[in-house]
Design a protein around this nucleic acid. Structure first.
Lengths: 133, 133
DNA sequence: TATAAAGCCTCCTGCAACTGGACGGTCAAG
DNA sequence: CTTGACCGTCCAGTTGCAGGAGGCTTTATA
């Protein structure tokens, strides 16, 4: 099947599929006219990549996951470790964002939000950490 | 003061300070030898930018925040609205990441993580959504 | 005073993971 | 035979800088 059909079948944009070929993630066969030829296995792998990317794995993680996937002698511990590292990164990010949310919510709450220029948000950014009682 | 001193005073790397000039966020005066000249106000603004970036505001948001900061006739409502949009984006991101965390934690938990190749994580990626009872 | 080291300058490249667009060849339908 | 959909390659842009090359200026030291 052509790339258009692979796009439909896998859910990945053709542009992305070509990009994955560029970086050597999934290199399909070629037809005589130069068109890319995607088989069942290819489409399956594309869907695999889509799912992995959807779970937030980096391209390099995906590369590793693909090779684990294709390795019949893999140890599930390796997969688990990879996923665990990823989960950890997500948790770090979550903590970070929760912190930001807290500060922002606080500042927004303190800002009256009317036509006057007085604004605790700008005061904070400007470093005017007022110690108001 | 030179850029090095501004770096110390503001906490922003010189590279970043130059970049901010490139994009017109903060354009300092120049000394006769061509060196950038940062005054008290400039350093203050750099610290403002650092804080804003630290809160996750985009460069474009920072640009808007700076101009609001400098506008003595601003309405705090505008600042609040901007911050609120940002908070919203953060919350969306949080929800997204929490979803990922949930799925990943579940998969990791289901994976025995030993030397055998059998792995629920790869099964999920491969689209083998088993309906095991 | 000579020179070396530190600090400054500009410009270019690269990162992640694509997306959009330009320009041109190929293929199936009418 | 022409039109239009589909495919190809290549280049630029996105976000927010960081790293480094190559070349000034200034400062500190011998």
């Amino acid at each position: 099947m052509n790339i258009g059909a692979a796009e439909q079948a896998s859910g990945l944009p053709a542009k992305t599929i070509r990009y994955y070929e560029d970086i050597g993630l999934l290199v399909p066969a070629r037809q005589q006219n130069g068109y890319r030829e995607y088989g069942r296995t290819d489409v399956h792998k594309l869907a695999f990549l889509k799912r992995a990317r959807g779970l937030g794995f980096s391209i390099e993680d995906c590369r590793a996951l693909m090779s684990l996937y294709e390795d019949r002698n893999r140890a599930s511990a390796d997969v688990k470790a990879l996923a665990h590292r990823h989960l950890h990164r997500i948790e770090v990010k979550l903590t970070e964002l929760e912190g930001l949310r807290g500060v922002l919510a606080h500042l927004i709450d303190a800002c009256h939000g009317d036509t006057r220029p007085d604004c605790p948000i700008l005061d904070d950014l400007a470093g005017l950490l007022e110690g108001k009682a």
